[in-house]
Design a protein around this nucleic acid. Structure first.
Length: 666
DNA sequence: GTAGGATCCCTGGCGAAAAC
DNA sequence: GTTTTCGCCAGGGATCCTAC
């Protein structure tokens, strides 16, 4: 490792994020050409990958190639290897692990002050950048929130880190950390006691905070594994001379290929056996024939029970939407809507359902007219995918579903994943019945992790989308941008998203009431007036309502829409349609403004309560100030009252409240 | 020695969230 | 509703490294 400086800005303030590493490991040969990260992010990721020993120059290393194969089976193992490598290559990580004790909590400020104290040459800004990278790494990767090497929490205005540690260490992760330490310390035998000393350079305690008792159990297990990995006796660890850290990774890869068989050994059965073996070891009872028959009877009963439970669960979880829990559904929704300005409503549908059931499900799925309606479909195999594609082609062309974005994941829920999920669920249920609470909990977690890992593959895989007569293939993590920039405009043809500059800021799209936005446009006397009132963020984006895509105003100085403005400009279109609709109400007596203008909330307009739409309606309703009268009082609707009517209008559209206040006449 | 690319570091704009 | 603060991110200059 390079000696000296701890503080560094070489990570550009970014941490190594889970999504980044997964994306890299899924595309190790061509990740640079496929990535949509910004230039500084790529620079940061490259640095993290080099320091993690996954890149050499711009080429993936053997370690990267092995980890890419382990990733889908055991993602946490990958992070343990990365963390181990970072300790030896990044002064900042080494400093963090060497300096702070397990179990302690410290604020961002504490970290900064300690860093400035320990690295006197560091400038404050550089130290801040370094801490920023470290916190970002802990906050956005499983190193922090799953391995609990630093759990980041915001208390009040400040971020705090709690260095908790984990005892959930794979034996081979322990072995890897020991062989890494051996490489750096140039010796191959250690004592457990020295692993727990402050001076030891790495090892499973320094890196992961594993309790001694748990570590000793893992070491005994490794020793009993025919001494392939290491020998352990009475607190002494002897590593093999002919093995390197890389060999441990190869061993893990080999184990993974055997894992399919292991998975079918029911965990509950193993637990039962361990339990009996422990009893036997601690007592002086010699196994009798009867005892063994009794033991086998119990285990065979357990196997039968698990088998029956599996059959029951296969029908219970026959549909993908039943397999996913709320958190997993939410995670997919957040992923798919990450950069979409409008709210998104998502429904997840199993493509194997009958056509009429699918139709019914979609009809019930969406509650609001102004949101993006997303239907995410999953299949079970390639043949299935072809069938679903044909179905979606048909549905997307139907009039009832012309505003629904259909998305089909090309990553299928394969039999292997499904069976593993069922296996763990079945063991958990049986364990629960027999009051093996710990086993039940562990197996429930395994089942969830199997699906989490599959969701991960889905997120970085391809999808086929269908909207009206169009369809295309896209990486799922690009779909959100595609919807925001293209598909949303296809649904809301006269929505304000058609003004490109308005898409640049999310705040103005956030669902909220904004009296000021209404007032800015309703009360203005001239364009200068509007410009003056929209100087500061976020209001400055609102003036774009009055511009076209070339940045030219579509209104004259007196705020009249120019004659030559194309009729498909969203604001002009809304203005004309409102005019046409209200004209019809002239001489007809009292009418309800909310009902009459409700068409604006649906496609192709998609009006809802946010800063830009409230501003736009404020602008359009200028025309009717003092021309409309309130039914209840007979009073003319002047500016102030018009503002209140507009606020009521949005409330009525949203919640159905205040309808009576919207009764008006000409 | 020099050119050009890679890396390191500082600065500041912007958006989102928190505080007022 | 407005102002302030914090974190994310990019631009760009300085320095280091490497190939010629």
């Amino acid at each position: 490792m390079k000696t000296g400086k701890i503080a560094t800005s070489k990570f550009q303030n970014f941490g190594l994020r889970r999504d980044w590493l997964i994306f890299f490991l899924c595309n190790i040969e061509d990740w640079i050409s496929k990535t949509n990260l910004g230039n500084r992010q790529v620079e940061s990721l490259k640095t993290w990958l080099r320091e993690s020993e996954l890149l050499e120059g711009d080429k993936p290393t053997v370690v990267a190639k092995i980890l890419s194969k382990i990733l889908t089976k055991d993602e946490l193992f990958v992070w343990k290897v990365v963390w181990t490598n970072l300790y030896y290559n990044v002064n900042l990580i080494k400093w963090y692990l060497d300096t702070f004790d397990w179990g302690s909590t410290f604020s961002r400020k504490d970290l900064l002050l300690k860093l400035l104290e320990d690295d006197e040459s560091a400038k404050e800004r550089t130290a801040k950048n370094a801490i920023s990278s470290l916190l970002n790494l802990l906050d956005s990767s499983p190193i922090g929130y799953e391995l609990k090497i630093g759990v980041v929490k915001k208390i009040g205005g400040e971020r705090y880190v709690k260095k908790i540690g984990t005892d959930n260490l794979h034996p081979l992760a322990v072995a890897y950390s020991l062989y890494k330490a051996a490489e750096h310390m140039e010796r191959r035998d250690f004592t457990v006691s020295e692993l727990y000393s402050k001076e030891f350079q790495g090892g499973p305690y320094k890196l992961f905070g594993i309790p001694r008792e748990k570590l000793e159990r893992i070491l005994r297990g490794l020793d009993e594994d025919r001494g392939y990995i290491l020998n352990y006796s009475r607190g002494n660890i002897y590593l093999r001379e002919d093995l390197s850290p890389l060999d441990i990774l190869k061993f893990k890869l080999y184990r993974n290929t055997l894992k399919v068989r292991e998975d079918y050994l029911p965990g509950l059965l193993l637990n039962l056996l361990y339990k009996y073996v422990e009893v036997e070891k601690s007592s002086s009872v010699v196994s009798s024939e009867e005892y063994i028959i009794e033991l086998l009877k119990d285990t065979i009963d357990a196997l039968k029970e698990i088998k029956a439970e599996k059959n029951r669960l296969r029908s219970k979880y026959c549909r993908i939407d039943k397999i996913l829990n709320c958190r997993q559904k939410e995670s997919l929704k957040n992923f798919l809507s990450s950069v979409i300005n409008r709210d998104v409503e998502l429904t997840i549908i199993d493509g194997n359902l009958d056509k009429h059931l699918i139709r019914k499900k979609i009809e019930k799925a969406f509650k609001k007219d102004y949101t993006i309606h997303l239907c995410l479909f999953f299949g079970r195999n390639e043949k299935n995918i072809i069938k679903i594609k044909n179905l979606l082609k048909e549905l997307s062309n139907e009039d009832d579903f012309k505003n629904v974005v259909f998305v089909l994941s090309e990553v299928v829920l394969d039999d292997e994943t499904f069976e593993k999920f069922i296996q763990y669920k079945a063991i958990a249920t049986v364990a629960d019945k027999h009051n093996y609470n710990k086993e039940s909990k562990i197996n429930k977690e395994y089942a969830e992790k199997i699906i989490d890992s599959w969701i991960n593959r889905v997120k970085f895989g391809y999808v086929q989308w269908f909207l009206q007569d169009e369809s295309d293939k896209e990486l799922m993590h690009h779909l959100s941008k595609k919807i925001n920039e293209e598909l949303s405009r296809k649904i809301f043809t006269y929505g304000l998203e058609n003004i490109k500059e308005l898409q640049k800021n999310r705040n103005v799209w956030t669902h909220r009431r904004s009296i000021r936005s209404v007032e800015i446009f309703l009360f203005a006397n001239s364009i200068e007036d509007i410009e003056k009132k929209t100087v500061n963020y976020p209001y400055r984006y609102l003036r774009e309502i009055l511009k076209d895509n070339n940045g030219e105003y579509i209104v004259d100085v007196n705020l009249k829409i120019k004659e030559n403005t194309p009729e498909d400009h969203p604001l002009k279109k809304m203005y004309l349609e409102i005019k046409r609709t209200l004209e019809k109400e002239k001489n007809k007596g009292t009418f309800n403004l909310g009902d009459t203008l409700e068409f604006l909330t649906k496609p192709p307009y998609g009006t809802y309560s946010n800063m830009i739409y409230m501003g736009a309606i404020g602008f359009i309703m200028r025309e009717y100030t003092a021309k409309l009268f309130e039914a209840e009082t007979g009073m003319p609707i002047q500016r102030g009252l018009m503002r209140d009517k507009i606020l009521d209008l949005f409330k009525y559209w949203e919640k159905g409240d205040h309808r009576e206040k919207l009764e008006v006449f000409y």
